[in-house]
Simulated scan of single mutants.
Amino acid sequence: MPKDNKKVSALIITYNEIGYIEKCVESVEFADEIIVVDSYSTDGTYEYLKAHPKVRVIQHPFSNFTQQKSFALDQASNDWVLFLDADEVVSQKLQYEIVETIESNPEDVAFWFYRKFMFENSPLHFSGWQTDKNYRLFRKSKARFSDKKIVHETLVVQGTSGILKNKLTHYCYKSFEDYKSKMLKYGRLKAKEDFYRENRYNVLSLIFKPAWKFFNHYIIRLGILDGRKGITICYLNALGDLERYRELKKLEKKNELAYYLVMP
């Protein structure tokens, strides 16, 4: 596909996303190409994508989120890129806004999207997510993913940024076990990030940071107003922080053990 400054490539990374990916792909069919990088799914995700007439799917081993997204970015044929998570959906109003924004030849080279979080099939209004926003639309030639983070990757932008009006729908919570698994995975990846940065484990972080996360999201950021949904999300987010520091402790112990084993 030739490069065109008005064309857009939709990019998604996946691993076992059946139940999410179908809505996501359907919502980006307006894009000029859809590229999905799959890290060897075992639940039928790859087969679904392989059979989809508008999708080019590439299997690539997963190391961390930053590396996987950087690999996907390299596959895009167009300068404008719409980068989504597999559990995000672009509404029709947002589709129109994206197209109109690109066709207007904006001076901004990247755009923030606010997100509407869905708990199963109903919106989550508070619980710390009400001000959440992420870069999702940007020019490939003017942005890259920072190699300093391996989870909740950071986009480094060369130029000015804008914000789109319509929100991206984020189906963050399919079931308790599914969301718990995500939070534990993110916690372990953050621990690796801390370890590589030489951020040391201490017991106070293990005790107080998960407690603060819960209090901040449930009380200060009004998760209490989300009822049962709020307490569930706030608890699982705090659990992710707890796993982060438990894992960091394990990594440091393994490192110390390896050091003593190689000592003469």
Results as ranks from 00 to 15, higher is better:
residue 3 K to D: 15
residue 15 Y to T: 10
residue 41 S to N: 11
residue 10 A to H: 03
residue 15 Y to M: 12
residue 20 Y to G: 02
residue 41 S to V: 04
residue 23 K to G: 10
residue 15 Y to A: 05
residue 30 F to L: 15
residue 34 I to D: 05
residue 2 P to L: 11
residue 23 K to Y: 11
residue 13 I to F: 06
residue 33 E to V: 13
residue 34 I to Y: 07
residue 13 I to N: 06
residue 28 V to W: 03
residue 40 Y to D: 05
residue 8 V to E: 03
residue 4 D to Y: 15
residue 25 V to I: 14
residue 23 K to W: 10
residue 15 Y to P: 01
residue 39 S to N: 15
residue 22 E to F: 06
residue 17 E to L: 03
residue 37 V to K: 02
residue 19 G to T: 10
residue 19 G to C: 12
residue 4 D to N: 15
residue 33 E to P: 01
residue 31 A to Y: 11
residue 36 V to P: 07
residue 41 S to P: 00
residue 28 V to G: 04
residue 35 I to H: 02
residue 39 S to G: 13
residue 24 C to Y: 04
residue 39 S to E: 06
residue 27 S to H: 08
residue 39 S to P: 03
residue 2 P to M: 11
residue 2 P to W: 08
residue 5 N to E: 15
residue 26 E to V: 10
residue 23 K to S: 12
residue 23 K to P: 05
residue 12 I to C: 00
residue 10 A to L: 08
residue 20 Y to P: 06
residue 33 E to F: 14
residue 38 D to S: 00
residue 13 I to C: 03
residue 8 V to T: 11
residue 30 F to V: 11
residue 40 Y to K: 12
residue 6 K to M: 13
residue 21 I to V: 13
residue 31 A to P: 06
residue 19 G to D: 08
residue 14 T to R: 01
residue 41 S to Q: 03
residue 28 V to K: 04
residue 30 F to D: 06
residue 2 P to Y: 07
residue 39 S to W: 02
residue 4 D to T: 07
residue 12 I to N: 01
residue 25 V to H: 01
residue 39 S to Y: 03
residue 3 K to I: 12
residue 23 K to E: 13
residue 12 I to W: 05
residue 14 T to M: 03
residue 37 V to C: 10
residue 10 A to Q: 04
residue 14 T to K: 00
residue 36 V to C: 03
residue 28 V to F: 05
residue 4 D to A: 11
residue 7 K to I: 10
residue 24 C to G: 09
residue 25 V to F: 02
residue 12 I to Q: 07
residue 8 V to K: 00
residue 6 K to I: 08
residue 38 D to W: 03
residue 16 N to K: 14
residue 14 T to W: 04
residue 25 V to K: 04
residue 20 Y to K: 09
residue 42 T to F: 09
residue 8 V to S: 01
residue 32 D to G: 13
residue 6 K to A: 12
residue 14 T to C: 11
residue 31 A to H: 00
residue 7 K to C: 03
residue 21 I to H: 04
residue 20 Y to C: 09
residue 26 E to R: 13
residue 39 S to C: 05
residue 4 D to W: 13
residue 30 F to Y: 15
residue 13 I to D: 01
residue 39 S to F: 08
residue 28 V to I: 12
residue 11 L to G: 00
residue 20 Y to A: 05
residue 7 K to F: 07
residue 2 P to R: 08
residue 41 S to K: 09
residue 15 Y to S: 05
residue 29 E to R: 12
residue 38 D to L: 02
residue 26 E to P: 08
residue 41 S to G: 02
residue 6 K to R: 13
residue 37 V to G: 07
residue 14 T to L: 02
residue 11 L to W: 10
residue 10 A to I: 10
residue 29 E to N: 13
residue 9 S to D: 09
residue 4 D to H: 15
residue 27 S to R: 02
residue 8 V to Y: 00
residue 15 Y to C: 09
residue 42 T to V: 13
residue 31 A to N: 09
residue 19 G to Y: 12
residue 41 S to W: 04
residue 10 A to E: 02
residue 17 E to A: 08
residue 3 K to F: 08
residue 22 E to W: 02
residue 2 P to F: 07
residue 39 S to H: 03
residue 27 S to M: 05
residue 33 E to C: 13
residue 17 E to I: 10
residue 36 V to W: 00
residue 32 D to Q: 13
residue 3 K to L: 14
residue 17 E to Q: 11
residue 36 V to E: 07
residue 2 P to K: 10
residue 36 V to L: 05
residue 26 E to M: 09
residue 13 I to P: 00
residue 37 V to Q: 07
residue 18 I to G: 05
residue 37 V to D: 00
residue 38 D to A: 06
